[in-house]
């Protein structure tokens, strides 16, 4: 693949995902306004329209306070938009559901449950037989590299291990879309890199749709098919960029790839030009 120029999408109403893929998430004219104590309303999201195709890895990239997490919570059904609708497979989203699995920066594991208990929780809730749920949980824990830690409580794990458990716990109940809210944001640089590699490896195997919120340009380019750039005050989609890099991606190859470097430089330049004083790093 030669050096491809970056093709900025339109400001709104862009279609994302693998070529001609069926849309799985449709966000239509979504706005979110928060009432503040000073009576001056804060517009977190302003008229966002976005379509995500099935099986796509889409990153939402933006400075803090641009509403990127709020957008993810709306898709998750945890937050209702002030106006507009979000749809999952054509049906309006009215609340959370097991078809959309969140992974949070704060891990949000159940501390009173063991690692195994956490991963089994969703399948058991869905009525799976305990023996089957346990087998599934063990398989997933092996996949995220945590064999041998089944009996541990979350408090006994490092941050990176907790996030691995959280990912396994969410994958366990088989969501069609993974909603990842700055999942590696609380981890040190080394752990972060390893988890990115592992996530990519897992994703490249079964190609679940992923909506991934981050403020790291490198992380977005490394993982995604598409990067949705947001700006803040009010939160809007600025640009949508196709990341046309070959898969499976290997970090050591990408780091030497001029295309990869170009994407990063270009996206950082766009943020510079936008005048958002807080640069994504």
């Amino acid at each position: 693949m030669g050096v491809t120029p970056i093709r900025p999408g339109q400001l709104a109403g862009v279609s994302l995902g693998r070529r001609a893929a069926t849309p799985i998430i449709e966000i239509e004219h979504v706005s979110q306004v928060f009432k503040t104590s000073s009576r001056r309303d804060h517009t977190a999201l302003s008229d966002i329209s976005l379509t995500v195709g099935e099986g796509a890895f889409v990153s939402i990239l933006g400075p803090s306070g641009c509403g990127k997490s709020t957008l993810l919570y709306i898709v998750g059904g945890f937050v209702s938009p002030t106006s507009g609708t979000a749809k999952m497979k054509g049906k309006p989203i009215t609340g959370p559901g097991p078809d959309r699995g969140p992974v949070f920066q704060e891990f949000a594991l159940f501390p009173w449950k063991s690692v195994l208990g956490n991963v089994m929780y969703g399948p058991l809730q869905q009525g799976m037989k305990p023996a089957k749920a346990e087998a599934l949980a063990r398989t997933l824990l092996a996949m995220v590299g945590l064999t041998g830690f089944e009996k541990f409580y979350p408090k006994e794990l490092s941050g990176g291990m907790k996030q691995r458990v959280a990912l396994a716990r969410t994958l366990a109940y088989g969501p069609e879309v993974l909603l990842m809210d700055e999942p590696f944001g609380a981890l040190d640089a080394h752990t972060r890199t390893r988890l990115q590699n592992d996530l990519l490896e897992i994703w490249e195997r079964d190609r679940k749709t992923v909506l991934f919120v981050t403020h790291s340009v490198e992380e977005a380019v490394f993982l995604s098919d598409k990067v949705v750039m947001m700006s803040r005050s009010p939160g809007r989609i600025r640009e949508v960029i196709d990341i046309d890099l070959p898969r499976p991606r290997r970090r050591e190859e990408l780091l030497l790839d001029p295309n990869y470097q170009r994407y990063i430089v270009e996206i950082e330049r766009m943020f510079d030009a936008s005048g958002d004083n807080e640069l994504p790093s």
Partner: peptide, 9 residues
């Protein structure tokens, strides 16, 4: 944590 539970149904 509650959201995670809600997503599980």
């Amino acid at each position: 944590m509650l959201w995670s539970g809600a997503a599980m149904g």
